[in-house]
Amino acid sequence: MQVRYGRILLRFWKNSMLRELSFRGHFVVNIITQLLWVAMTLVFIKVIYMRTSDIRGWSEHQYLFLLGTHMLVTGLFETFFFTNCWRVSELVRTGGMDFILLKPANTQFLLSLEQIDYSAMASLPIAVALCVYGVVEGGVQLTWGKTALFAGLIVIGVVLLYSLVFMFAVTSIWLIRQTGLNNLWFYVVSVARYPSEIYRSFLGGVLWFVLVFIVPILLVANLPANVMVRTFEPMQVAYLAIVSLIMLGLSSVVFNFAMKWYRSASS
């Protein structure tokens, strides 16, 4: 069973690769825009750290590592899931979901993993480079345990982001048109790339509380970065892992419920 899903996944990736190769320019343009974005962010950070040596306890190297971690999580999500989530609304509106529903395999699996956006992978090497730079320049002692925990948290973070965005995408089964997904993702990305501490004094910490405990998107980059280059609370790690799993389960419940309302547009 698992073998068959593995083979389906490989075929999805292969077909996506074949398609990507037929649009060669796409990949190059994406790398260039990614590099520009990173360059701008680095300038922004540099400007801030010219006037201060820490932001709420984060040194410049630690912040660069946080930025790398953030790019890693969001880059992985965009590579594997964003296009698929984005397509849900399109598939509902045009009735293209029909063909996925007809197949003898888990519908959520087929829907969530069919496309892979290789061009979004462009940010991954840059992300790794930022992390390495942050570790080396910051003089952080690496251990196997820390690295493994870091990697695990990256996966957990991607799972959480997927569950949240997918559930949002699924609402298009009722709303038919759902174009808010791009905006939602933009907000998630923007919010999660700063140290979580900066939200603490804002609005009496209400926003911080919501983004850490209710919809813990602030932890997605902050927590793995803390694990690696600062200190961390094991409770937070357990909390994020549990919430991610619950959200993943919830996404499946929501999806199966929503599919009863699917109307299969047009003939």
Partner: peptide, 11 residues
């Protein structure tokens, strides 16, 4: 390529 995908999905 789509046929091959069907092959995997239907086993």
């Amino acid at each position: 390529e789509s046929f091959r995908l069907h092959q995997e999905i239907y086993g």
